[in-house]
């Protein structure tokens, strides 16, 4: 049995869903959770339900907001005071930025962006995509402990941990140490939608959208089904959408439950970024578009006719 710490980020008072995905898969290990700042009793109970034993609320001057150095310093101080074999976190913007620095403070390794894992006799082995998802490989960590692992959001799925944890929460005083790179300002995105990498449903537009204004028909569809809108590289390079919306090898890698590709031809780089979506719907006027080879449901036709009809049909289905 391994001693595991799961580091969780908190967004709007709630722990990131990937934390619960990880906890659900740690059945048979001892799992604690660490968080910066406060967490209400309801959230602690949610963590306990998914198997968390102790919930450590790390607090100290300079930790009110994220900084790679402050968070890594404080977490390393806390981890050194315990005896963890493994430290998990989400492969989120923060996790990807901070965990490599944290692991290196222990001269330890980090297996990043794993999409599945097992513990055999208390030893971690993971699976992760490489070459933008064009292949998969087994990943193991060697060298000094603790070993660090980041997990891709939405990849494991929620699985109930049959054994609830005690979920006892306590404050822990930690020091942020020397912080040389600090956030002075956060410029909020114009969209309030869920980020592509965490979205459960994604509607993506390709080059065939023709211009930025036409993305409105995708927005309307997305509003009805609670989706986040993405774009192919061709659409981004043509100036129809910002790079933050790009799905594919040089954009975001996504794994939603439902992916609806509208006017996306399906270049190998795009397929690499979305092929692990659970169900794929493709709308394209070209019956030979490569996207159809990955689609569970392909609709050959003009997206400007099909998408509005689809929006109406979803409205009917969902009683909206």
């Amino acid at each position: 049995m391994a001693n595991v710490l799961v580091f969780t980020e908190v967004h709007d008072g709630r722990v990131k869903p990937v934390t619960l995905e990880i906890l659900g898969r740690l059945h048979g290990q001892t799992a604690d959770v660490a968080v910066f700042g406060d967490l209400d009793a309801g959230q602690v109970a949610e963590l306990a339900k998914h198997g968390a034993q102790s919930v450590h609320k790390l607090k100290g001057a300079g930790l009110e907001k994220y900084s790679p150095e402050g968070y890594a310093n404080a977490l390393s101080e806390f981890i050194k005071s315990k005896n963890y074999d493994y430290v998990f976190g989400g492969a989120t913007s923060m996790g990807k930025d901070m965990l490599p620095r944290l692991a290196t403070k222990f001269d330890a390794g980090l297996a990043s962006d794993v999409v599945n894992f097992t513990f055999d006799g208390g030893v971690f082995a993971g699976t992760r995509p490489l070459f933008a998802g064009k292949c998969l490989a087994k990943v193991e960590v060697t060298g000094p402990k603790p070993h660090f692992i980041s997990v891709r959001p939405n990849a494991l799925g929620m699985s109930p941990n049959p054994t609830a944890g005690s979920g006892s929460a306590a404050d822990v005083a930690v020091s942020a140490g020397d912080i040389r790179a600090t956030i002075k300002e956060i410029i909020k995105a114009t969209s309030t939608k869920v980020d592509l990498t965490e979205a459960n449903i994604i509607v993506t537009g390709g080059r065939a959208m023709k211009n930025a204004e036409n993305f409105q028909i995708l927005d309307q569809l997305a509003d009805v089904i609670g989706a986040t809108v993405g774009a192919s590289r061709a659409a981004v390079d043509s100036g129809f959408a910002p790079h933050a919306m790009q799905v594919g090898q040089t954009g975001k890698t996504v794994a939603p439950s439902l992916y609806i590709a509208c006017g996306v031809s399906g270049a190998i780089q795009h397929l690499a970024g979305m092929r692990t979506s659970k169900v794929i719907v493709a709308i394209n006027s070209d019956p030979d578009a490569p996207i159809f080879t990955k689609a569970d449901y392909g609709i050959v036709g003009d997206l400007f006719q099909i998408v509005p009809i689809m929006t109406e049909e979803f409205k009917k289905l969902l009683g909206k």
């Binding site: 297996a111 292949c135 794929i280």
Partner: peptide, 26 residues
């Protein structure tokens, strides 16, 4: 070699999806 921290093995192609359903809505 003692600096290696992460080991990869068992490289394989991702499982292929079975062919989906295609509808002609032209």
């Amino acid at each position: 070699e003692s600096d290696r921290r992460v080991k990869y093995s068992q490289f394989k192609l991702p499982p292929e999806k079975p062919p989906g359903k295609k509808f002609d809505a032209t």
